[in-house]
Design a protein around this nucleic acid. Structure first.
Lengths: 193, 193
DNA sequence: TACAGTAGAGAACGATGGTTCTCCGTGCAA
DNA sequence: TTGCACGGAGAACCATCGTTCTCTACTGTA
């Protein structure tokens, strides 16, 4: 097995375990067992557990971006593309192993003690906001709407995680629709005056 | 020192330490040092660290409710009372030691391993939603608005915590105002038709 | 003064976990 | 075949931490 596939197996296994049980609750030996890669090899690929956590977060960042972009691309109009973000959340919340946002969870667990983890989480959230901002601008809406939609998305994630009820996605979607339409109405009003 | 004040000192000290550094990062010995209460005493008051964590969360729940209710009471109109929730968040986010919502952080850290902690967090969030629901009904708005406002509040908390920027409160407040006004307009429209 | 009971300081204990090390088997080169 | 570099399995090491225990000091009482 070459380094690349070993690395992949370790990251995938660690992701699964960390997400399901939390980082502290999972020992490196459990990662070794799940990944079927020796501890020696793991430590040759990742200098420390902290580095592995960061690698897992980067991996999740890519996965998330890929899935989100696919969901958005499937929508027809700019307005639907904005709301597709929340449909994407809805589908995610309904998955059996949904346990909230891995980034928010990791931040709560390690943000105070690991600057590298805190930075990885910050980067992911910033990237998401940037992505939403792009969608908002396509719609010709003011930038502030992007921040509002991002806040709705974050709130839906924590609410769904803690309450265990996926309904938060639909509620956030409805709120997003109201915000978007209100901004559209204001824009049209402004342009017609 | 009687049991009650000892208990208070321990909970207050543990709250400060857990919030600042996370639960795992703080040993019971650090709690003992900060609270100036012997380990023996601590363990006679709380059977385990987990029980202490739950006690801290309950303490925070009361503190939060008290502060929020005071902020809401200071507002004049029902609409202002709804928005006062976000002004309360704004003031909180600007505090020097703000490190996000302790409940969300604790859930991320321990929710997967400690049912008692998960339940305490769930209870706090449910109580908050219930409180917002009361304010929304005072305004004569449909219940769904309460869920939307609660999601905005949660999103503002995680966004402010991760980005480190208190602006999320003002952005959420603006979104809340739009949602409330839209609901009011729909209501008036419905009653005038 | 002698004593019983309590509480505190801090050592001790047992478990766990991150990280490193040792030992062994394997495959490859000459 | 011999020697060697490599990788794996898992023990070992060291630190930390939750929890308990021991020993000592002190308080109030007869």
């Amino acid at each position: 097995m070459d380094d690349e596939t070993a690395r992949d197996q370790v990251v995938t296994a660690a992701d699964r375990l960390f997400y399901a049980h939390g980082v502290h609750a999972v020992g490196m030996d459990a990662v070794r067992a799940e990944a079927q890669v020796s501890l020696k090899r793991i430590y040759s690929l990742f200098p420390s557990k902290d580095d592995l956590v960061v690698a897992v977060l980067h991996h999740r960042t890519e996965q998330w971006a890929t899935g989100l972009e696919a969901a958005v691309r499937a929508a027809a109009t700019p307005r639907d593309r904005l709301l597709a973000v929340f449909d994407f959340l809805d589908a995610w919340f309904r998955e059996d192993d949904f346990r909230g946002c891995a980034f928010i969870n990791s931040f709560g667990e390690l943000g105070a003690t690991s600057p590298a983890v805190a930075e990885a989480v910050r980067a992911q959230k910033a990237a998401f906001q940037e992505y939403v901002l792009g969608l908002v601008r396509e719609e010709g809406l003011p930038d502030v709407v992007a921040a509002q939609l991002a806040i709705l998305a974050e709130g839906a994630q924590t609410t769904a995680a803690i309450s265990g009820d996926p309904a938060a996605a639909a509620q956030a979607r409805e709120a997003a629709a109201v915000l978007v339409d209100a901004a559209l109405a204001r824009g049209e009003h402004a342009s017609t005056v």
